[in-house]
């Protein structure tokens, strides 16, 4: 293998691992938007709280190991999702959508500032959960990178089966496409929306734990960039399409990494959002999105 080839292959591998985290965040985001028919602005904070619970308390403080920590992140973010549901959505049923939009912005600020007050304003260290690597020639693949991609595959496959085969999943898809028709077939729309939102948040929480473990740090304002990256990846893939979100996340990760190589690391976020803007200009429905009602 030539050195140049290995060099770029390495960039792609690292990009895929990072992209897998984006993908998981974007999938959660797509599930929430599909269930609620609404963009939420608290998602980044949900990711942050998942990272805080699983990455900091799970891995660093309680030393639960990565699997229990992922579970902790999932559960914590689920609960945060239920809280957001009660505070932001359930209180104003049938109101104008702007109300939800504004309340999610408000709650986002409360969660972020609250975490700074109660947790810390500093970056907190998260120790390595696994430090091994495989070497294929000169190519390095970290164990944690494989873990991240594995978690993405496991969760998206589970989600796929859940949506396609279970009663609740079927109801969730029905609600995402047409709430009126779903209600008429006897679906408890409100309840299904609550659960859809919680599932989406929980996926974001897991992504947060992975983020903390991969970069060895969690901090209270990490949600800002995380939330926008999730949004960018979801837009890339078609906003509410789950395969689209997965593909969008992975591509975004790889593009960012190649771009960082081309320019410098300061350009990382510029590249990410540049991609989003270009996608919106050229194909607003995203890579796998379709015009109209394509939802989860």
């Amino acid at each position: 293998m030539s050195d140049t080839f290995v060099y770029y292959a390495q960039l792609v591998v690292d990009g895929l691992a990072q992209g897998a985290i984006y993908a998981l965040m974007a999938i959660g985001f797509a599930v929430i938007m599909g269930s609620l028919d609404l963009v939420t602005f608290t998602y980044g904070e949900v990711v942050m709280l998942g990272a805080l619970a699983g990455g900091y308390y799970g891995v660093a403080i309680l030393k639960l190991g990565i699997w229990l920590s992922l579970l902790l992140g999932f559960a914590a973010a689920w609960l945060v999702g239920m809280f957001i549901d009660v505070v932001c959505y359930r209180r104003w049923p049938g109101g104008p959508p702007e109300v939800w939009l504004i309340t999610t912005i408000g709650i986002s600020t409360v969660l972020k500032s609250g975490s700074q007050v109660l947790f810390s304003t500093e970056q907190e260290f998260v120790p390595d959960v696994m430090d091994g690597m495989w070497e294929i020639g000169d190519l390095r693949v970290l164990h944690i990178q494989v873990l991240i991609i594995g978690v993405l595959f496991f969760l998206s496959a589970s989600l796929w089966v859940f949506l396609g085969k279970t009663r609740l999943g079927m109801q969730l898809r029905a609600v995402s496409m047409d709430k009126t028709a779903a209600a008429l077939l006897g679906v408890r729309v409100q309840r299904v929306m609550t659960i859809g939102n919680a599932i989406g948040c929980a996926l974001g929480g897991v992504a947060g734990v992975l983020l903390g473990a991969y970069y060895n740090s969690v901090f209270a304002i990490m949600g800002g960039v995380a939330g926008i990256k999730a949004f960018a990846a979801a837009v890339f893939g078609g906003l509410t399409s789950i395969p689209g979100a997965a593909l969008g996340g992975l591509l975004l990760g790889v593009l960012e990494n190649l771009g960082v190589d081309l320019f410098s690391s300061g350009w990382r976020d510029i590249i990410g959002f540049g991609v989003m803007i270009i996608v919106l200009l050229i194909k607003p429905s995203g890579l796998l999105g379709r015009k109209g009602a394509e939802k989860i």
Partner: peptide, 14 residues
Amino acid sequence: VGFHYRLRTTLLDA
């Protein structure tokens, strides 16, 4: 979807 009432499948079943 119209049948959803009668479905008993859970994620693990599937």
